[in-house]
Design a protein around this nucleic acid. Sequence first.
DNA 1: GCGCCGCTCCGAACACTGTACGGACACCGC
DNA 2: GCGGTGTCCGTACAGTGTTCGGAGCGGCGC
Lengths: 254, 254
Amino acid sequence: MAAKSEDGTTPGIPLPWNRPQRRREQPSLSREQIVAEAFALLDSDGIDALSMRKLAARLNAGATSLYTHVANKEELLALVVDQVFGTLPQPEAEGSEDPKVWRAKVMECAESMRATIIRYPWMVSVIGDVGMIYLGPNWMRISESLLAVLDTAGFEMGDANDAMSAVMGYTIGTACVEASWVSSLARSGHDEQEWINRLLPTVIEATKEFPRLHRLYTTEVPGEVEAGRDSSFARGVNVILDGIEAARTARHGA
Amino acid sequence: MAAKSEDGTTPGIPLPWNRPQRRREQPSLSREQIVAEAFALLDSDGIDALSMRKLAARLNAGATSLYTHVANKEELLALVVDQVFGTLPQPEAEGSEDPKVWRAKVMECAESMRATIIRYPWMVSVIGDVGMIYLGPNWMRISESLLAVLDTAGFEMGDANDAMSAVMGYTIGTACVEASWVSSLARSGHDEQEWINRLLPTVIEATKEFPRLHRLYTTEVPGEVEAGRDSSFARGVNVILDGIEAARTARHGA
DNA sequence: GCGCCGCTCCGAACACTGTACGGACACCGC
DNA sequence: GCGGTGTCCGTACAGTGTTCGGAGCGGCGC
């Protein structure tokens, strides 16, 4: 492997997103089609249901035909994930000098990201397994926009990066935990309330030696868990934004 | 004839002299043993190398024997992950009235968690795939301790929970991103510097349309990336702690 | 002593998986 | 016409997780 190109420069590693596609006039299969169908299959049946054979069957194709358009399953998953990121709104920088404005933009970005991960909980498996997702074009597009927002808000480049990774790290981590809950919920087949009712005695038993956790789990108002999570997440982001702003005014402002 | 095979099982007619005497002296397999060996296998060879057959072979056992001690692979992974959490130091609550003290305790907790996830990057795959990890006893033990710290620091229960999930969410999210980098690094076989040098031209090409990202990736000082990540993480946690403290003094203090 | 239950261990088998290989076929510039 | 190139796919391989039936054994009641 690692053949040298003829001009002597090391070729570099081709990323799946810009690896050149083979071209043909009207081939019955295309990378876009495959990625779209893989997304549809993942969305309806989850990550365990995605196999190259099933996917090919859906496309009325042979399993091995997929490999002329996609290097392997991992690359396919990377493409699907980045395509999902492509559906996220990208924040516009204008007006971000006003703290209220840039905070709202960052918040909206974080919330839409979280909502997407929870909506498609198989993404956390892919994020865990596939490296270099954050080099996909759509992820980069969002990062760039977010940096632009913070830039016009007056942040130094390094500070903007710190702020972005704080918010994004929090968002991804939180969303992953929540999504794993959601997907175990989906696998159980029950709705959330029913599942909680079934799980509650187990949890109560398990937290017997942990009084604070016990109190936390038992005092949570049933029926509003989802709204509770939403507002809890928003509070978390606001806390981080407060910290960011405080750090900046402490250094920059008098 | 009839040479003994090295594991003691002699196929063919059992002669009275080598007929096994005290096979069932004690169960030769235990859940703890299985979990420990699975951890060792994961640590040395990574997540793709863990199969029930290979694990059983390491234990000189048949593959299906494992299922008398463990329900399935997912359960096994959950057990391994919680065992890893069991190696983390658990913070003591005493002295946490002092803001400096509780901040240091929370920071230490976050840093050890991150270090562990990066040290064992296969954990992110498991966290993504296996639901309900946060109900394992060791995870709960850490949560309880952290809540205790914040409790004696004077936090309300709900605020303590918000603070904990903010820090833990940030930690998990950041560590997952970093770990996926580390594991793709490990798969590549090169060391970090070499891998970066190989990847750099690709990244530069990919960020051509994203000036801010481009600047970010190209101005990073090579040779200190690891230390840079460490301090960046610590700064992130501090930012969150600032936000937490600010929110609390704004509500509680005059 | 005997029979029997239940626990542990395991070989065989099943239904799948990702994907390498080589062949078949359609189109291309010559 | 003729290679060459790109697409499609049947077959095959080397696995995977897990089920099933059964074998050996310790300890139980009798």
